[in-house]
Design a protein around this nucleic acid. Sequence first.
DNA 1: ATTAAATGTACAAGGTTTTTTACATTATTA
DNA 2: TAATAATGTAAAAAACCTTGTACATTTAAT
Lengths: 69, 69
Amino acid sequence: MIGVQNRIQELRKVKKLTQDEIAKLCNVSRQTINAIENNKYDPSLSLAFDLAKSLETTVDELFNERKTR
Amino acid sequence: MIGVQNRIQELRKVKKLTQDEIAKLCNVSRQTINAIENNKYDPSLSLAFDLAKSLETTVDELFNERKTR
DNA sequence: ATTAAATGTACAAGGTTTTTTACATTATTA
DNA sequence: TAATAATGTAAAAAACCTTGTACATTTAAT
């Protein structure tokens, strides 16, 4: 488990985007999107901002703070 | 240069904290705080959230998106 | 002017994120 | 049902973040 949870999959489906489509919007690989959705690791801050913009939300809305570091 | 600019130094001084003090609040080294303030690299998303909490603000307020990735 | 505190910087080592390639499984549609 | 799209997963390599130690410079206090 990782330090931050996210609502990427939820918001991505609202916009009817595939992992591949959002990956292209953010200039990363599909595997990166998949890994982040499945909490394999957290995105970089830069990618977090790109994801938030792609999903028309904020980093704070997209990633909810958790306890661990 | 890095993908995200930040207002850490500005907000840190408002609260009259040293780099060392904020480092301890976030459980990272002073060098990490120094490097981030001077845009040597971006923090991890997890640290970005800790910094925002320490400075009583949000990640979106603390880090302003830029153009490059 | 001296001392102490705070900040800037460097470098090697270790940990984490991302990529590429490749294949397996699950869902969707014809 | 068969074909296709979407998603899950793996492993090695590259790129990036963080640490520790150490020293130099700047700022503040005495």
